[in-house]
Write a protein that binds this DNA or RNA. Structure first.
Length: 422
DNA sequence: TCTGGGGTCCTAGGACCC
DNA sequence: TCTGGGGTCCTAGGACCC
């Protein structure tokens, strides 16, 4: 049976979310910055036209932005995830099978559907009507071709946001116009190697005869990608959300940090959110990695401290994990450095229910589960951080907390910041 | 002054076993 | 030239994604 995939991708998603509540910014350059107001992570086409690149550090293009009256926002993730949910809910009406691929993208199974182009336009119009978010739609017999179609739909305005690559002759024409670096799963390193084989376009890649060489150089996935370009589906729709095998949490600091005391607070805070994620997927972990580092961009003595710590038994108890993380931190900390970032990672994650005590695990009375559940519930209801472990720090002003000087209001999630109707 | 954060998959190579 | 062979498990590191 023939497969048909559609990839629906929101246009400049974070910027589009900001524009929803600022209709005056329509057709004007808008950008959204990463955490700590570091670099651009979302740009409207007006901003791209000004030459501001993805990932460009804000301070380097600040003057340009001011000159052109660019509206620049700090990231406001509670707004974006909320809008994402609404988009996905709308998309679900159009397919029996939906894979939410990222915050702003989803694959739809459209196998057996007729008149695909019209259907895609209907999807596009419904999403914008229901949520206000503009999207582009790419269609193809494989995920890779659907992705490529979507790339073309975004790049050339003449397609009006929809490209259908289900027909062979359309694929031939389209793939000749796509550079390999634009393909899904191909970045600089792979593109360079492909170019060295005289493979420049997606069509060159698709038609390259020496498949053994492809596999040797680009491994199994490289070959699968080629087969997908030929119309043979190799990447299936993934309908079940998999549990995370690793959970990380890290942040740059708003201001440089020197003391172990501040690092302890930052690490404890990161562990707190990592453990919340861990419990949310009903898992436990056994290993904790901790690191802290100086800024590689700054001309100061550099240090990258890393340490890991294994617990005697699996757990998701914030208090216990913090204890292990802090002892790991103590032994990697060196005085006299200007720290810029700290992060933690939980690994050896497994299902709580499957978790059995090993022969050598020490017995610990399990009073923690109910306590953690109560904590999560209160923080969900009354806001993150309402209840926390004291190690996270009790002072009001924390030097290490990130900068977010340009954040929009929490239009859809914070009661006190609801849009006012005059 | 100022440069993000959170993930996954694949492979090679070492340790270890019989 | 030629150092046994074959298997599993784990980890580190590279590459990529959004």
């Amino acid at each position: 049976m023939n497969k048909t995939f559609a990839l629906v991708d929101c246009n400049a998603f974070f910027c589009s979310c900001e524009r929803l509540f600022r209709p005056d910014l329509q057709n004007k350059p808008v950008g959204v910055l990463s955490n700590n107001d570091g670099c651009f992570v979302s740009r409207t086409k007006e901003l791209k036209k000004l030459g501001v690149k993805m990932g460009a550090p804000y301070f380097k293009v600040k003057a340009l932005c001011e000159r052109h009256k660019v509206s620049v926002f700090s990231s406001n993730f509670s707004l974006y995830t909320n809008m994402s949910d609404r988009v996905m809910l709308t998309l679900a009406q159009f397919t029996p099978e939906l894979e939410i691929y990222s915050v702003d993208e989803a694959f739809l199974n459209l196998a057996g559907f007729k008149d695909l182009k019209n259907y895609a336009h209907e999807i596009k119009q419904t999403v914008v009507r229901n949520t206000g978010i503009p999207v582009s739609v790419g269609i193809g017999p494989t995920k890779t071709l659907a992705k490529t179609a979507n790339y073309l739909a975004k790049k050339y305005s003449k397609f009006n946001g929809v490209v259908d690559l289900t027909k062979k002759e359309d694929q031939d024409k389209a793939l000749a116009h796509v550079k390999v670096i634009e393909l899904w799963g191909v970045a600089k390193a792979t593109a360079d190697k492909l170019n060295a084989l005289n493979i420049y376009t997606a069509k060159d890649y698709r038609d390259f005869k020496n498949t053994r060489l492809i596999k040797n150089i680009f491994t199994k996935v490289g070959l699968q990608r080629q087969e997908e370009l030929q119309g043979k589906s190799r990447f299936e729709l993934e309908l079940i959300t998999k549990k995370k095998k690793e959970i990380m949490c890290s942040r740059s600091f708003g201001k440089p940090v020197y003391s172990l005391e501040s690092l302890r607070e930052a690490v404890a805070t990161h562990i707190t959110s990592a453990c919340e994620k861990l419990r949310k997927q009903d898992s436990v972990c056994a290993e904790i990695q901790v690191y802290t580092r100086t800024s590689p961009f700054k001309n100061v003595p550099q240090y990258y401290g890393f340490n890991s710590s294994k617990m005697l038994s699996h757990s998701s108890d914030t208090r216990k994990v913090i204890k292990y993380a802090l002892s790991a931190l103590e032994s990697l900390y060196k005085m006299g450095y200007e720290y810029k970032k700290a992060g933690v990672q939980l690994s050896q994650i497994r299902d709580r229910k499957l978790s059995q005590m090993s022969l050598f695990e020490q017995y610990e009375p399990d009073n923690s589960e109910a306590l953690m559940r109560a904590m999560d519930e209160i923080n969900r209801r009354d806001g993150a951080g309402t209840i926390k472990v004291a190690a996270c720090g009790l002072r009001q002003k924390k030097a290490w907390v990130m900068n977010q000087n340009r954040r929009s209001q929490r239009y859809v999630t914070g009661f006190w910041e609801l849009k006012k109707v005059k």
